[in-house]
Simulated assay, not measured.
Amino acid sequence: MSLAAATRETVREHPFLLDALRAGTLNYSATAAWLVERGGLDGDADAVATALRRFREDLPAYATADRTASVTMRSGVGVVTDAEADGVGEGVDGEPLLRVGGAAVVSEGSHTALLATGGVDAAALSAALRRLDAVDVAVAAAGVAVGGGDDGSLVVIVDRRDGATALRVVEDALAAVPGVDGE
């Protein structure tokens, strides 16, 4: 594999670098040195910097898009195992709010659920989770589902004390979901 191809592959393994590269905010020399020293890339830092500059030329520009969605907050939810969920504080039609693998989110507990409906998808969930992490709000559970149209549902479960902060963060994240020009 060529150094240019290896550089592109290594950058894709570190999405924060890909975002910075697309946004035009990447310091090529510092990033090249980091990729050689810590990123596992085998090559000369100057050659890697050149490969990064060329890679940038091929990438679509970084952009954000506003997602139209309604965000509500629901206190008193819990994350339990599926076995514990049977008959305990279930949501609409006796079903948990969210079920993933062997866990379920039910309507009895010490957490807060943020529910967003509308123009949400995996990119919106990713943006929300990244922002929540940046403000040190721990997420107990999260999920997204997109129906047949453009509308979807997004659920993020946080500690009750973090509910108001998380609501603001999720609303802000949905107002500027990262993407590329034209998306």
Rank of each mutant, 00 (worst) to 15 (best):
A4K: 07
R8V: 14
T10L: 06
R12H: 12
H14C: 01
P15K: 03
P15Q: 02
P15H: 02
D19C: 01
D19W: 11
A20Y: 05
R22T: 09
R22Y: 07
R22P: 11
S29G: 14
S29T: 15
A30W: 01
T31N: 05
L35S: 06
V36C: 13
E37I: 00
R38G: 00
G39C: 08
G40A: 10
L41Y: 08
L41T: 10
D42G: 02
D42S: 14
D44S: 08
D44A: 05
A45P: 13
A45F: 02
D46G: 08
A47C: 01
V48N: 04
A49K: 08
A49P: 06
A51L: 06
A51V: 08
L52H: 05
R54N: 14
R56C: 03
L59E: 08
P60L: 08
P60K: 07
A61P: 10
Y62C: 02
T64E: 13
A65F: 13
D66R: 13
A69P: 10
V71D: 01
R74L: 15
R74N: 10
S75K: 03
G76N: 11
V77A: 08
V79S: 01
V80G: 07
V80L: 09
T81L: 11
E84G: 04
G89P: 04
E90G: 01
G91V: 02
E95P: 00
P96C: 09
G102L: 06
G102M: 05
G102W: 01
A103R: 13
S107P: 00
E108F: 00
H111E: 08
H111S: 10
H111K: 06
T112Q: 06
T112I: 09
L114W: 02
A116P: 08
T117R: 15
A122V: 12
A124V: 07
S126V: 02
S126L: 06
A128N: 03
L129K: 04
R130W: 01
R131L: 14
R131E: 15
D133Y: 05
D136M: 09
A140M: 12
G143A: 11
G143S: 11
G143F: 11
A145F: 06
G149W: 02
S153M: 13
S153G: 15
L154Y: 01
L154V: 04
V156I: 15
V158C: 04
D159I: 00
R160L: 09
G163T: 06
A164E: 15
A164L: 12
T165S: 11
A166R: 09
R168A: 14
E171S: 11
D172N: 15
A173S: 14
L174M: 07
A176H: 03
V177W: 12
G179M: 12
G179C: 14
D181Q: 12
E183L: 10
E183D: 15
